[in-house]
Design a protein around this nucleic acid. Sequence first.
DNA 1: TCAAAATAGTACACAAATGAAATATACAGG
DNA 2: CCTGTATATTTCATTTGTGTACTATTTTGA
Lengths: 167, 167
Amino acid sequence: MPSFDATERRVDRTCGRFPAFPRQPALLVRLVKHIARSVHDAGNASLRAHGINHTDYNILMMLYGSEDATCTPSDLAAAAGEKLANITRVCNALCDKKFITRAPSHDDRRKIMVRLTPAGRRFVEGLLPDMADLLDAFTQGLDAREQTTLEKLLKKMLAGAEAVAGQ
Amino acid sequence: MPSFDATERRVDRTCGRFPAFPRQPALLVRLVKHIARSVHDAGNASLRAHGINHTDYNILMMLYGSEDATCTPSDLAAAAGEKLANITRVCNALCDKKFITRAPSHDDRRKIMVRLTPAGRRFVEGLLPDMADLLDAFTQGLDAREQTTLEKLLKKMLAGAEAVAGQ
DNA sequence: TCAAAATAGTACACAAATGAAATATACAGG
DNA sequence: CCTGTATATTTCATTTGTGTACTATTTTGA
């Protein structure tokens, strides 16, 4: 019944044709990919009315959650899971919208301090009620205990994936 | 120590500033996103030498796992988690490389049957040993029991996410 | 039986993301 | 001090992905 069955059947057939293929790791990776995609799409759909997309939102949220609502592009990239070059592009657009400002750091002039403006903060807080509902909907099928277990296991998986990707 | 801490701290600060924000669902969604990204990047890095990217690979794999190594673009889109328009583009490139062929279906002429060629099958099988190692590395931190639990919980989360995204 | 609706795929203009090179600043060792 | 190396960010050409509109077929149901 669930749409993932079509994927799972294909992984099974792959294992039948090439027995060294690791079934369970492949399923885990594909599940993660499908979830990430659904979340991204649902986020985009819900944010479109506000004139931003899911990536913009993630970056604004990581800034909102930073001390002083300020941090560097590199920190944003690490926290949001984006490439630095993409942060530059997104921040250009967020600057144009007056949601953030950029200023060189004084203790290290290679660094840029990105800061959420009051207008940016208000914009984020206007989004949060809807986004909170979305997040709850994504995880509605899991009780509190299951969510805790899932968090623990995903952290282990992330450690493995980052070790391979080289941070 | 793990790089996800920077993200987690920001979610915590967000909850401090906006208490209705659901901490655990937000962490789960961000974990999934970070893992998907690491996997995608590591896949791209490892596949570059072979002249394809992770998306191309996923589509080839879904075909390889199809009955008769044949299916429609719509099925590929659903199984690989891609948009139909993107399947068209990727399949154009895979056709140019002679890894797949396209032919109209006879029982429904709206449909196109995409089929892996013998050259495409050999190409995939040449990739599989390395990709199997990658998959094992991603999940090295999880024992068999944990992988089973993780699969179960991710399937529940996917159901929730797809319900929101509307399939 | 035939119009309206649904389904399958593609085309295209545009948006988003990437890799690699370039720029600028900081740091470390001789 | 310099000089080489590491770090932080941006630029740019290119690749990858999306939304929407369009064509062609099939299905529905009145």
